[in-house]
Computed example of a mutant assay.
Amino acid sequence: EEAARGRLATIDATCPLVTKVHKEAVRFAQEDYDILLIGHEGHEEVIGTSGEAPDHIQLVDGPEDVAKVEVRDPSKVVWLSQTTLSVDETMETVDALKDKFPQLISPPSDDICYATQNRQLAVKQMGAEADLVIVVGSRNSSNSVRLVEVAKLAGARDAHLVDFADEIDESWLEGVSTVGVTSGASVPEVLVEQVLEWLAQRGFEDVEIVKAAEESIIFSLPKELRRDLREEAATLAAQRGGTGSGEAPASA
Score class of each variant (00 low, 15 high):
residue 94 V to W: 06
residue 136 V to Q: 03
residue 77 V to C: 02
residue 167 E to C: 01
residue 160 H to K: 15
residue 88 D to T: 14
residue 245 S to H: 00
residue 157 R to A: 15
residue 42 G to F: 06
residue 119 R to D: 08
residue 59 L to K: 11
residue 155 G to R: 14
residue 252 A to K: 00
residue 101 F to Q: 06
residue 236 L to C: 02
residue 168 I to V: 15
residue 26 V to K: 15
residue 55 D to Y: 06
residue 49 T to K: 01
residue 175 G to S: 14
residue 97 L to D: 09
residue 4 A to H: 11
residue 65 D to P: 02
residue 29 A to Y: 10
residue 71 V to S: 12
residue 69 V to R: 10
residue 17 L to T: 00
residue 223 K to V: 14
residue 238 A to K: 12
residue 155 G to N: 10
residue 236 L to V: 11
residue 49 T to V: 15
residue 178 T to Q: 04
residue 104 L to K: 07
residue 42 G to R: 06
residue 86 S to V: 04
residue 90 T to I: 00
residue 83 T to Q: 03
residue 75 S to H: 08
residue 175 G to K: 15
residue 229 L to W: 13
residue 244 G to Y: 08
residue 179 V to M: 03
residue 155 G to E: 09
residue 143 N to C: 03
residue 247 E to Y: 06
residue 131 D to E: 15
residue 76 K to S: 12
residue 5 R to Y: 11
residue 133 V to H: 05
residue 190 V to D: 12
residue 225 L to K: 02
residue 251 S to P: 00
residue 114 Y to V: 05
residue 144 S to G: 09
residue 207 V to Q: 13
residue 67 A to F: 08
residue 249 P to C: 11
residue 231 E to P: 01
residue 123 V to F: 05
residue 84 T to S: 09
residue 236 L to I: 12
residue 197 E to S: 13
residue 181 V to T: 07
residue 110 D to P: 02
residue 175 G to Q: 13
residue 140 N to G: 01
residue 162 V to Y: 08
residue 19 T to D: 13
residue 171 S to Y: 00
residue 133 V to L: 11
residue 90 T to R: 07
residue 143 N to G: 05
residue 206 D to N: 10
residue 11 I to L: 13
residue 246 G to D: 13
residue 183 S to W: 03
residue 54 P to D: 00
residue 42 G to K: 06
residue 115 A to L: 13
residue 98 K to M: 09
residue 167 E to D: 12
residue 79 W to D: 02
residue 111 D to H: 01
residue 10 T to D: 01
residue 67 A to E: 15
residue 41 E to T: 11
residue 116 T to G: 06
residue 212 A to Q: 04
residue 77 V to F: 04
residue 247 E to G: 08
